[in-house]
C-alpha cells in the first residue's frame, strides 16, 4: 500500500509545536507522499511555519475552540473534510491526552479502526507495537477503509527539520456537533516547572519506592540538578502522592530516551521499563541483586540508595 497523502495531528503548547508532533512529521515525510497537518488554537498561523520547516506543505486550521476540549470539534472537522472527499490515506496522532480523544472520536465517526501504541511504522503502513513489557513486537496493518488512524507513542521517531518553507494555512470548519461538544474548560492550572523537560532531557534521574519515604525524593532532585537532569519517578511513588503524575515514566507515563537514565530504588516492572528501555545508557541502584532492572542496566549497583546517593551527590558537588 502506498501512501499518497499523510496527515499529522499537530499539537502545540505556548505557541510552539510539540516535539511529538515534529517526530510524526519526520515519519510522515519518510512515508513518501504529501504531508499535511491539522492544527487548532487561536494562533496557528504564528507557529505553522515550524510545521512547514518539518515537512508539512499545508496546515488545516480548525481555529479557536472556545474552551471546548479538542476531541469532539477537531475530530468533527477532520471527518467533514474526509466526507467531502479531502481524505488522506493515513493520519498520525501522538499518544497524548488530546491525541487519543481525537483519534477515538474520529474512528467512531468514520467507522475505521485505530492502531494504538505504535512504536514503529514501515513506509507501507505496517505498524509495530511493543507487547509483554517490550519483550515482543507485534506487527499489524489495516485491511479496511482509509484513512488508517495510527496512535504513535512519543519518542518512537526522531524529529528532523526538512528545510521546507512556510506552509499554506487553510481554515476548516467545525460542523454542528450537537450535544457531544458539551465539555468546556473553565480554568487551567499549570504546575510550576524548572529544569529540563522529562521527555526531552539528556539525563533523567528517577526514584522509586526504594527511597522509603516522600522526603527522600529530595536526593533525586538534588542529583538531577547537579547533572542538569530531569527528575522522574515510578508509578508506585506517583500513586503514593510523593510526586506529581507528570514525573511518571512508563506505560501510563512518559516515554524517555535520554543519554543516561539513572533508576534509584526502582524494581524494573515491565510497565516501567517499557518507558525507559530506549535510554542509551542505564544506571541502576537497587539493594536487591535479583531486581529485574539489573537485566537491562549497563551499570548496576547492588546497594542501598541511602548510602550510595548521598556519596554520589557529595562527589559531584566537590568537582
Amino acid at each position: 500500500m502506498a501512501f499518497d497523502k499523510v496527515w499529522v495531528l499537530a499539537e502545540s503548547f505556548e505557541g510552539k509545536p510539540l516535539t511529538s508532533t515534529l517526530e510524526l512529521l519526520a515519519k510522515a515525510r519518510e512515508m513518501g507522499g504529501t504531508v499535511e497537518a491539522v492544527a487548532w488554537g487561536d494562533d496557528v498561523a504564528s507557529w505553522a511555519p515550524e510545521l512547514g520547516a518539518h515537512g508539512a506543505t499545508k496546515v488545516y486550521d480548525v481555529g479557536d475552540l472556545g474552551g471546548s476540549l479538542p476531541g469532539v470539534p477537531v475530530a468533527a472537522a477532520i471527518a467533514a473534510q474526509a466526507q467531502a472527499g479531502n481524505k488522506p490515506d493515513a493520519i498520525l496522532f501522538a499518544t497524548s491526552y488530546d491525541g487519543r480523544d481525537i483519534a477515538g472520536r474520529l474512528s467512531a465517526k468514520l467507522d475505521v479502526g485505530v492502531l494504538s501504541n505504535v512504536v514503529g511504522l514501515s513506509n507501507d503502513g505496517v505498524s509495530e507495537h511493543a507487547v509483554f513489557g517490550g519483550t515482543a513486537i507485534v506487527r499489524a496493518r489495516f485491511t479496511g477503509d482509509t484513512p488508517g488512524l495510527y496512535l504513535v507513542r512519543p519518542k518512537s521517531f526522531a524529529a528532523e527539520a526538512s528545510g521546507g518553507g512556510a506552509p499554506e494555512v487553510l481554515s476548516i470548519d467545525v460542523p454542528d456537533t450537537g450535544a457531544t461538544n458539551g465539555a468546556k474548560v473553565v480554568q487551567r492550572h499549570v504546575e510550576a516547572h524548572t529544569g529540563p523537560k522529562l521527555d526531552e532531557a539528556a539525563v533523567v534521574v528517577s526514584g522509586g519506592r526504594g527511597l522509603g519515604e516522600a522526603g527522600k525524593f529530595e536526593m533525586i532532585e538534588t542529583l538531577a540538578k547537579l547533572l542538569k537532569a530531569a527528575p522522574g519517578a515510578s508509578r508506585a511513588i506517583v500513586d503514593a502522592g510523593w510526586v506529581p503524575y507528570s514525573y511518571q515514566v512508563g506505560q501510563t507515563g512518559k516515554t524517555v530516551k535520554p543519554t543516561v537514565y539513572i533508576a534509584a530504588g526502582i524494581s524494573g516492572a515491565t510497565q516501567h521499563m517499557v518507558g525507559m528501555k530506549g535510554a542509551k545508557n542505564i544506571i541502576a541502584i537497587n539493594k536487591d541483586q535479583e531486581a529485574p532492572i539489573f537485566s537491562i542496566a549497563d551499570l548496576g549497583v547492588v546497594g542501598d540508595v541511602h548510602k550510595v546517593l548521598p556519596k554520589l551527590i557529595e562527589a559531584l558537588q566537590n568537582r
Binding site: A136, I137, S295, A297, L299, V301
Partner: peptide, 28 residues
C-alpha cells in the same frame, strides 16, 4: 470485518545486562 490484522509477532531486540557491582562504600 475488524479492518485490521496482525501480520507478525516477533521477539523484540533484547537489551543486555552490563556490569553489576556490589557497593562496598565506593560504588559512587
Amino acid at each position: 470485518s475488524p479492518g485490521q490484522e496482525i501480520v507478525e509477532v516477533a521477539p523484540a531486540e533484547e537489551r543486555k545486562a552490563g556490569e553489576v557491582i556490589q557497593d562496598e562504600g565506593d560504588a559512587h
